[in-house]
């Protein structure tokens, strides 16, 4: 059993048979009073979000038995996404709902971590930084590397983000998958 001292972002715990992930937490303690940890939990299967306050030292549940396997994204058909284990070539399918916002950054042959809860695939984790092609953006403004001005760009996945004016439509970008923000241009 884990108690509140184990709480950190991305901790995966099992509550009532479901895997939950800590998406955010806060230590709260009145100057003269009992300490608590406020948590925001997300159900890793249903995506439901739950706010829960634990008293310091309180038991919060077992560590969820989540296995991660590196797999390559092969293709999507309708709402099903197919991934393949790079070592044994085993293929699995998960729904677009379980892939969630990761669809914004997922392109064929990208390696991701597929999460298994009791041998059942329940979702994926992207690398923090991915390289993606631009599908469409306004022509580049040469030389403007300092103004901080931005313009929208549509990625090959359909995701739209703000990029600096010097980016052109044949550039490849590094994107932070945690924030969805532009990081830098991949050098050609």
């Amino acid at each position: 059993m884990l108690d509140t001292t184990a709480i950190r972002k991305n901790l995966k715990i099992e509550i009532d048979g479901d895997p939950w992930i800590v998406v955010d937490f806060q230590f709260v303690k009145p100057g003269k009073g009992q300490a608590f940890t406020r948590t925001r939990l997300k159900n890793m299967i249903t995506g439901n979000v739950l706010d829960k306050t634990y008293k310091s030292g309180e038991k919060i549940g077992q560590a969820a038995n989540i296995d991660e396997r590196e797999m390559a994204f092969l293709y999507s058909q309708g709402t099903m996404y197919t991934f393949m284990d790079n070592e044994n070539y085993e293929q699995i399918e998960i729904t677009s709902e379980q892939v969630g916002d990761a669809t914004n950054f997922l392109v064929e042959n990208m390696n991701v971590e597929v999460l298994f809860f009791h041998d059942r695939p329940i979702g994926i984790e992207l690398p923090n930084f991915v390289e993606l092609d631009i599908a469409e953006t306004e022509p580049a403004v040469k030389g403007d590397t300092v103004s901080g001005a931005t313009k929208p760009a549509t990625l090959s996945t359909g995701y739209v983000l703000n990029v600096p004016l010097f980016i052109s439509s044949d550039d490849k970008l590094v994107v932070d998958t945690r924030t969805g923000e532009y990081v830098e241009r991949v050098k050609k």
Binding site: P30, Q34, F36, R38
Partner: peptide, 14 residues
């Protein structure tokens, strides 16, 4: 009621 006081503090008052 001390326990109730602090729990309500965290969940409602703060």
């Amino acid at each position: 009621d001390e326990d109730r006081y602090f729990r309500d503090w965290v969940d409602g008052i703060e």
